[in-house]
């Protein structure tokens, strides 16, 4: 990868992180939802750079197109946030923050780095060809080949969720 590509990737990673920060800490839920959108976009780009182009597309379609809009709808249907600004438990954030910084983060980070360094010791032979080859037909073959059973299972799940959501949200 060329240098500029790497820079673009880093930029998008920073975008993802910043939007993720906004999602968790912004007092207004609407802003949080929109920042979530951008976070998904950053993630899609990262997928792209990781050679998962089909997934990046799916990500964009499903997450950005679907889930975020769904969330916006939910916000509008529920708490007229204009009148009622849910008072976040601002004061109480100090404890989780500390916990995260000193408790969770160092260990997750150290674990990941340790894992990564061990993984990178052996680079798979067809690294290059895989990284930059289109994956759609591979995914298609895999879905209907090795992963036929989960594919079918997931369809049943979607059906269940669909029916459930409709029944749950029906008007009285």
């Amino acid at each position: 990868m060329s240098e500029t590509a790497k820079i673009i990737l880093v930029l998008f990673q920073l975008l993802t992180l910043a939007s993720a920060l906004l999602v968790t800490f912004s007092p207004n839920i609407l802003y949080a939802s929109i920042s979530l959108l951008f976070a998904f976009l950053g993630v899609a780009i990262m997928f792209l750079y990781a050679g998962a182009d089909f997934l990046a597309g799916v990500q964009v379609v499903v997450y950005i197109g679907g889930v975020t809009i769904l969330v916006l709808f939910a916000i509008m249907l529920t708490s007229w946030m204009y009148q009622v600004k849910l008072r976040d438990s601002r004061g109480k954030l100090i404890v989780p923050l500390l916990l995260a910084l000193f408790g969770l983060l160092p260990f997750l980070y150290q674990g990941a780095q340790h894992l990564a360094s061990r993984v990178l010791r052996t680079v798979p032979p067809d690294f290059q060809t895989f990284a930059y080859s289109p994956k759609t037909n591979a995914v298609g073959e895999a879905l209907l080949g090795n992963y036929l059973l989960p594919f079918e299972g997931i369809t049943v799940l979607l059906l269940g969720a669909l029916v459930g959501a409709v029944w749950l949200a029906r008007p009285k």
């Binding site: 889930v67 969330v71 709808f73 979607l158 269940g160 459930g164 959501a165 409709v166 749950l168």
Partner: peptide
């Protein structure tokens, strides 16, 4: 996606 739908419901 499925989970988000149900959760919002």
């Amino acid at each position: 996606a499925a989970e988000a739908a149900v959760a919002l419901a």
